[in-house]
């Protein structure tokens, strides 16, 4: 099957960390909004963020009134012996009228298939399904309808994948960039005891300290120095894999520069690669970010669907370190 011949308009999937961000995303032209409950059941379990059950129900109503969909991310791995919070999250997502849940854990997928068969299931990036056989496995065993692809594949690999799998794909186009395969990274918990998989946080703020040392701004995570910025340098949050480290006497951003993914120039290629939906990262970012990024991508997606050139959109203020990259979509990144 060659999906590129029947390329449809790309669906724009946008983040909402709060009810105000949900309304901002919908107002700025999101086709779909994704969000999580205010607990450890989702991978952006940041302090003060996310939705109560009441807020979700209100958010679904607002989105549906504006022809937008709501996806609920329940994409951490349930605690052994105590999966109730995750089961409850699936139940409540369905009860609140969510259009789909985004899941990563195999046990939770099995639970959802058994107890909520009508609730549409998407596979979270945290499940790290990076090849056609892994994706077929999730489609066969749990009837997932869409897979969020790990940020490790090139556009060519994505195109090859889409020709060989029975489900929709969703890819990240903007925001924070994991350089490690998602869902398979224990760097954060090695330093802080808290991880994306188990606690829904990476390099948590509770373990972050900034110290002024002379004219340097030093950022620390737990007991480890992650970076040190000179007076005129743009600072960054000490996400472990975006730190500056020393290898054989030379100091560099060995894993990744302090940068954000921005694939806005590649929408046409992604559309031709058979991708169904584009995902914007940033549930932890403010609604100002949501408004600006969603508006820009709304224009870009509309232009791409009409075969027009990309509008000139500057989003450098919203990216980490004021830099961006197309990441793994281009092979040279590796």
């Amino acid at each position: 099957m060659n999906k590129s011949l029947t390329a449809k308009k790309l669906e724009l999937v946008c983040p909402a960390g709060t009810p105000a961000s949900l309304r901002a995303a919908v107002d700025a032209g999101a086709d779909t909004v994704y969000l999580g409950f205010r607990d450890e059941t989702n991978a952006r379990n940041f302090p003060g963020l996310n939705f109560s059950r009441r807020e979700l129900a209100d958010g679904v109503a607002y989105a549906h009134d504006h022809n937008a969909k709501v996806l609920v991310a329940i994409n951490t791995f349930p605690k052994a012996g105590d999966p109730e919070a995750w089961h409850q999250a699936v139940r409540d997502a369905e009860a609140c009228g969510a259009d789909a849940v985004i899941l990563a854990d195999i046990g939770l997928l099995a639970y959802t298939v058994e107890h909520h068969p009508k609730l549409r299931r998407h596979l979270s990036v945290q499940a790290s399904a990076s090849n056609k056989e892994a994706i077929r496995f999730y489609a066969r065993e749990f009837d997932v309808k869409r897979v969020v692809l790990p940020r490790v594949l090139t556009v060519e690999e994505i195109a090859a994948l889409n020709d060989n799998i029975p489900v929709e794909t969703e890819v990240f186009v903007f925001g924070g960039l994991c350089v490690m395969a998602e869902g398979r990274c224990s760097l954060s918990s090695y330093v802080t005891g808290q991880s994306p998989n188990m606690n829904g946080v990476c390099s948590p703020a509770s373990h972050v300290r900034y110290e002024e040392v002379g004219d340097q701004l030093v950022s620390k995570l737990g007991e480890f120095t992650i970076n040190s910025f000179g007076e005129d340098e743009a600072a960054g949050y000490p996400t472990l894999c975006k730190g500056r480290f020393s290898v054989e006497g030379s100091v560099s951003y060995l894993f990744e520069d302090p940068t954000s993914l921005n694939a806005i120039t590649m929408l046409d290629a992604l559309m031709k690669a058979g991708v169904t939906a584009l995902k914007i990262e940033g549930r932890q970012r403010g609604r100002a970010y949501v408004t600006q990024v969603v508006s820009a991508f709304r224009q870009a997606v509309d232009a791409a669907s009409r075969g027009e050139a990309m509008p000139d959109l500057d989003m450098s203020l919203l990216t980490e370190g004021g830099q961006d990259t197309t990441g793994a979509y281009q092979k040279t990144w590796r």
Partner: peptide, 25 residues
């Protein structure tokens, strides 16, 4: 956007980063 301001160092934060994040969110 608070993150954008911080990245550009127009805003500075000292002390309990998590508490600031709660306030911001």
């Amino acid at each position: 956007d608070g993150d954008a301001l911080f990245f550009s160092r127009e805003l500075s934060v000292e002390g309990d980063t998590e508490a600031v994040l709660v306030l911001r969110n």
